[in-house]
């Protein structure tokens, strides 16, 4: 798919000075894991909420030898993923893939791929709201002071409320984490199922929030700890059945409604993982159905 880059545009759409500015922000973010670095976010040819932050980060780090994978909810073939992949095919001409193992840059909206990431890979997250304390403390001046002074008791107030209302910590995505024992970080709307994958990951993780103009990062092999209470420890989502198509267990599943009489199936949210397993001969209960 090495189509020539669209003429009239710089490689990867952004001009080189803009990329340089964003790379500086990324370097600072890597140097201070979990700290939100402000950057001069650009207007991109897509609406806010579609991943303008992630796209700018990817555009700044992508080179001609890179192989790009884009996922939305773990899937390679939903609108958001397809549009962003096409955007980079057009403006860079780099190779794209759906295979996690082949990609050097993976841009994601929610999920972290099931296959373990390796050194040299970069995971780019599209972040809607980078500030974990936003809904508890609306003043940005105050939340910045709280980050500076490491005053994070307020985050536990939210978890306390969860337990008081639901009997357990009901937050299932956007689950707050401490990065490298210092900064409280919002992992963007990834399901908490994926939080443990961030911990000491071999890959570099970059987060871009376009509307909010913030970039933050988790360097490889950094401690990422999900917040919890001593008597209500952090737990990931559990699924009762394995994937209906490939029979995988211990993976994050999506519910698919099959008809209007209550039939449904649970399948891997990571489509590449599911397809790879099925190509290897794994079959689930409903293994011959087409997803």
């Amino acid at each position: 798919m090495n189509a020539p880059a669209a003429s009239g545009y710089n490689f990867a759409y952004l001009d080189e000075q803009t990329k340089r500015m964003i790379r500086r922000a990324i370097l600072k973010a890597i140097a201070i894991p979990g700290y939100q670095v402000p950057f001069a976010s650009r207007e991109m040819p897509m609406p806010y909420g579609w991943g303008t932050g992630g796209v700018q980060v990817t555009a700044s780090i992508i080179g001609e030898d890179d192989v790009l994978k884009v996922i939305d909810q773990g899937s390679d073939d939903t609108t958001n993923a397809v549009s962003i992949r096409k955007f980079f095919e057009k403006t860079t001409g780099v190779a794209t893939t759906t295979a996690t193992g082949e990609a050097t840059i993976i841009q994601t909206r929610h999920r972290i791929p099931e296959a373990p990431l390796t050194e040299g890979q970069v995971l780019v997250y599209q972040v809607p709201i980078p500030e974990p304390l936003r809904f508890l403390e609306p003043r940005e001046t105050e939340t910045r002071t709280m980050h500076a002074l490491e005053e994070y008791g307020l985050m536990h107030v939210k978890l306390y409320e969860d337990i008081a209302r639901h009997g357990h910590i009901a937050t299932s995505y956007d689950y707050p984490v401490m990065v490298a024992g210092r900064y409280l970080m919002d992992p963007s709307p990834t399901p908490k199922f994926d939080n443990p994958k961030m911990h000491r990951s071999a890959a570099l993780q970059l987060f871009g929030a376009g509307r909010e103009k913030r970039i933050y990062a988790i360097p490889p092999y950094t401690d990422v700890v999900s917040l919890d209470f001593e008597d209500h420890p952090f737990e990931v989502n559990r699924f009762d059945t394995p994937c209906a198509l490939c029979g995988a267990s211990g993976v994050y599943l999506d519910e698919v409604v099959l008809d209007d009489r209550g039939r449904r199936m649970f399948v891997c949210s990571d489509t590449d993982h599911c397809e790879t397993r099925r190509a290897d001969g794994h079959r689930g209960a409903d293994g011959d159905a087409t997803p």
């Binding site: 008791g153 107030v157 306390y160 409320e161 008081a164 209302r165 209470f229 001593e230 008597d231 209500h232």
Partner: peptide, 27 residues
């Protein structure tokens, strides 16, 4: 007060800010 969170969390906020991490104790 934090008007949107429960009375218990309002009282417990200072304790959590001081690093108490045991839900049962705070409650």
């Amino acid at each position: 007060l934090r008007m949107r969170v429960s009375a218990g969390a309002n009282v417990g906020e200072r304790l959590m800010a001081l690093g108490q991490r045991h839900y049962g104790d705070i409650r």
